[in-house]
């Protein structure tokens, strides 16, 4: 059985088509990544001191430097903490949302099951926010608190879509019971560790027409102006969410991710998607040790 040149050529083509097939089946597709900074195994907000070096200017919300806050050039180094309580205690749409959240919560929890479903012990909302994101045994996946609010509300017969105003309002109401308490999620083991690793990778993955990653702005361009907008550090960002965006509405974290995506020319993903949840886990770990403060506002 001698192979003719034509047969050889054909078998060569076969090999090529096999290789192409193998790539589709298992091998990773070609992607580019922004270089990782050293996050360590168990990150915390103060690690920012090693990266953008702005930590000292926002570590204590009560003692921000007024001059820095008012400075066009250096304001970004305060990581916008001047719009959080206690530095800014003025009334805004976030407080209105908190009241709406309380009203909805009382309706939802009339039989006590809503709080239990969310994981509150004996209906006590104190520190409930600190349990999230978590691996949830019922849903068999890592979830943020807003995803669980949607799920538990549904069990009480109410539709509170993740990302909607009412879902986010309930989130603000619950989160406020953890005011002053530092975020603390353990990403050193189990499903949260896997989620953290995936989120870290996603945060550095380039996509969209711009070929930008989240890190393009929040690491590479941090502190430089993008025509009037200056990206700040990605450390310490999660403790004031959900937040009230003064230019439009109450906003949940995943809706913010969708906004950053489209601003950067990247197709946004569904609110509550595993991808956004993994990024949430990654960013929450980077806010560990930083105290919760809601209702907050952001421009």
């Amino acid at each position: 059985m001698k192979l003719t040149p034509v047969a050889l050529l054909l078998s060569g083509l076969c090999a090529v088509s096999l290789a192409a097939h193998a790539q589709q089946a298992g091998e990773p597709v070609y992607r580019e990544y922004t270089g990782y900074i050293d996050y360590g195994k168990s990150p915390k907000a103060s690690d920012d001191a090693r990266h953008t070096g702005t930590w000292e200017h926002w570590k204590d919300r009560a003692k921000l430097d007024e001059k820095r806050v008012a400075s066009a050039e250096d304001q970004w180094t305060t990581n916008w903490k001047f719009m959080d309580p206690p530095f800014d205690g003025s009334l805004h749409g976030g407080h209105e949302a908190q009241d709406r959240g309380e009203e909805l919560y009382k309706q939802l929890n009339a039989n006590g099951r809503f709080a239990t479903c969310l994981g509150a012990k004996r209906g006590d909302l104190k520190s409930l926010r600190l349990q999230y994101p978590q691996y949830n045994r019922t849903l068999k996946r890592v979830v943020g608190m807003e995803q669980m609010i949607e799920h538990c509300a549904q069990q009480q017969g109410m539709k509170l879509e993740n990302g909607s105003y009412d879902n986010t309002a309930v989130s603000v109401y619950i989160t406020a019971f953890s005011n002053g308490m530092p975020l603390k999620i353990d990403v050193t083991r189990g499903p949260l560790k896997d989620s953290f690793e995936r989120g870290k990778k996603l945060f550095h993955t380039k996509a969209g027409w711009t070929n930008f990653s989240c890190a393009t702005c929040h690491v590479s361009i941090v502190g430089r102006s993008l025509r009037g907008q200056t990206p700040t550090t990605h450390y310490g960002d999660i403790a004031h969410w959900p937040t009230y965006r003064t230019k439009d509405e109450l906003q949940s974290l995943h809706v913010r991710f969708a906004e950053c995506n489209r601003n950067a020319g990247v197709q946004p993903l569904k609110i509550g998607s595993q991808e956004y949840t993994d990024i949430e886990v990654f960013m929450t770990a980077l806010s560990n040790d930083y105290p919760v403060a809601v209702p907050s506002a952001r421009d």
């Binding site: 709406r100 539709k159 879509e161 990302g163 909607s164 105003y165 509405e249 809706v255 609110i271």
Partner: peptide
């Protein structure tokens, strides 16, 4: 997130 709504 339109105000006072449970849907987007």
């Amino acid at each position: 997130p339109a105000k006072n709504m449970g849907e987007l």
